[in-house]
Amino acid sequence: MTGIVKWFNADKGFGFITPDDGSKDVFVHFSAIQNDGYKSLDEGQKVSFTIESGAKGPAAGNVTSL
């Protein structure tokens, strides 16, 4: 699925993605970002991701920028 990064705190390594389908915002951890180098996201960035079952509920996985 796709969405827009609502916010991401690079110091803490997590944030939230707002899915394009209008569903509830999804937690994203830096370890789910699939790019080389520094793993961070920018507010407003368009991303593709999967929904994984995290310890505290749904979380984004396999996050790639579009």
Rank of each mutant, 00 (worst) to 15 (best):
A32S: 13
G15Y: 02
K39I: 07
A60Y: 02
K56D: 08
P19T: 05
E43H: 15
S31P: 03
F27L: 04
A60F: 01
T18H: 07
D42S: 14
V28C: 07
V5S: 01
Q45S: 11
S65H: 12
D25C: 06
I4Y: 12
T64S: 13
F30Q: 09
A60Q: 01
K46M: 11
V26R: 02
L66G: 07
G3W: 01
G57Y: 08
Q45V: 09
F8G: 01
N9S: 11
F27M: 04
G15V: 02
L41W: 04
K6T: 06
D21V: 08
N35H: 13
D20N: 07
L66A: 08
K56T: 11
E43A: 15
G3K: 00
G37A: 09
K6C: 06
P19Q: 04
I51H: 05
M1Q: 11
F49L: 04
I4P: 01
T64V: 15
K46T: 08
L66E: 08
G44M: 05
E52I: 15
A59M: 15
Y38K: 10
F8L: 02
V63C: 03
K39A: 08
V5D: 01
N35D: 14
S23N: 08
L66D: 07
I4F: 11
D42Q: 15
S65L: 14
F16G: 02
T18M: 15
K56H: 15
G44V: 02
I4W: 13
W7D: 02
L66F: 10
V47G: 00
A60S: 03
D20P: 03
S23H: 07
P58R: 11
F49Q: 00
N9T: 04
A60E: 01
N35I: 14
G13Y: 02
I4S: 09
G37C: 12
I17C: 01
T2N: 06
G57M: 06
V28G: 00
G3Y: 00
F8W: 15
V26T: 03
D25Q: 07
D42N: 13
G13A: 03
L66H: 10
E43P: 15
S48P: 00
D21P: 03
F8A: 02
F14K: 02
T2F: 07
Q34Y: 08
D20T: 08
D20G: 05
K56C: 14
V63Y: 01
K12E: 05
V63E: 01
M1I: 10
V28A: 03
S40I: 13
L66W: 08
V47F: 01
W7K: 04
P58F: 11
N9E: 05
D42E: 13
S31T: 14
S31L: 09
T2I: 11
G44K: 06
S40N: 09
S40G: 12
D20S: 10
G22Y: 06
T64W: 11
F8Q: 01
A32N: 10
D36P: 13
V26P: 00
S23M: 07
G44H: 05
G54I: 05
K56E: 07
N9A: 09
G61Q: 14
G22L: 06
D36F: 10
Q34H: 10
A59H: 15
M1G: 07
A32Y: 04
G13K: 05
F14A: 02
N35V: 14
V5E: 00
T64L: 15
I4K: 11
A60M: 01
N9Y: 06
K24M: 14
I33D: 02
S65R: 12
I17G: 00
F14W: 15
N35Y: 12
K6M: 04
V28H: 00
G37N: 10
Q45N: 07
G57Q: 06
S48D: 04
A55K: 12
K56A: 11
A60V: 04
F14D: 01
D11M: 14
F8V: 04
E52N: 09
I51L: 12
K39L: 09
D20C: 13
K46S: 08
S23P: 05
S65E: 13
A32L: 03
S31R: 08
D20L: 09
G13L: 03
P19Y: 06
S48E: 09
T64E: 10
G54W: 11
A32W: 03
V63P: 01
D25V: 05
D11L: 13
A10F: 10
G54A: 10
L41H: 01
S53V: 15
G3T: 00
I4G: 03
K24I: 11
K12V: 09
G57T: 05
A59I: 15
A10W: 10
T50K: 08
W7V: 04
S53N: 14
N9M: 06
A32V: 10
V5P: 00
Q45H: 07
P19F: 04
G54P: 04
E52K: 09
P58Y: 10
S48M: 11
